[in-house]
């Protein structure tokens, strides 16, 4: 639907509409929290059952890439927050620029993730496709990598969706900023921050267990 000035009839005003949309995004995020929640539950069950296996598995991950990706995501979140902050008719170029920056960082994240997957493949650490880790902790390590791949793949999927949304918004903002877009930007930013936070949890669970002092 074109961005008509009139508010859809179920709303009384533009701000009514925008607040409603934001509430919608929050409820959606609640859903997402439970989506990852189920996965994390499985992680904790198995980490409890195979503590050594998980630590060993974790040591075989690429901490450098993981850390770099964390930094990348945090920066992109910052750019998005900035874009929300300065959004207005005058600054639309800057806004679009910031969003583009965030998009590039998001793409960089995906790229690095791809490299990481590739390295794991080379090391024969992909359960179900090529998993040759043998020796004492094979089971735990395999369960760890199953979690690793599922969780990061779902996260990457969220990233891709987020990048798509940001791209649409960047184009729209460049064209003509309006309060309507401001609300949309706000919601998408919420989503992007959420994806970021999920990553921080995943980072801690995937890369750190094998590297804490012990």
């Amino acid at each position: 639907m074109p961005d008509s000035p009139a508010v859809a009839p179920q709303f009384t005003s533009a701000s009514h509409r925008d607040e409603t949309a934001e509430l919608g995004m929050w409820v959606f995020i609640a859903t997402e929290v439970l989506l990852f929640g189920g996965l994390l539950l499985a992680y904790f069950v198995y980490r409890h059952a195979y503590p050594q296996g998980f630590v060993t598995g974790s040591r075989h991950t690429e901490i450098v890439i993981g850390t770099a990706n964390t930094a990348i995501l945090l920066t992109s979140s910052f750019l998005v927050a900035w874009a929300v902050e300065i959004f207005s008719a005058e600054t639309r170029r800057l806004t679009a620029g910031l969003l583009t920056g965030a998009i590039c960082l998001g793409l960089a994240f995906i790229l690095l993730k791809g490299i990481e997957y590739h390295r794991e493949y080379d090391e024969h650490l992909v359960p179900g496709i090529d998993f040759r880790f043998t020796g004492s902790l094979a089971n735990g390590v395999q369960l760890f990598f199953i979690f690793y791949f599922i969780a990061t793949a779902i996260h990457a999927l969220h990233m891709i969706i987020g990048i798509g949304l940001l791209a649409v918004l960047a184009l729209l903002c460049r064209a003509a900023p309006s309060t309507r877009r401001r609300a949309a930007l706000h919601s998408v930013a919420l989503y992007w921050h959420f994806v970021d936070i999920v990553w921080i949890f995943l980072f801690a669970l995937i890369y750190l267990p094998g590297r804490s002092a012990s």
Partner: peptide
Amino acid sequence: VGFFDPRIGGD
């Protein structure tokens, strides 16, 4: 192979 596979110690 997956999370629930008893052959690799899954539950």
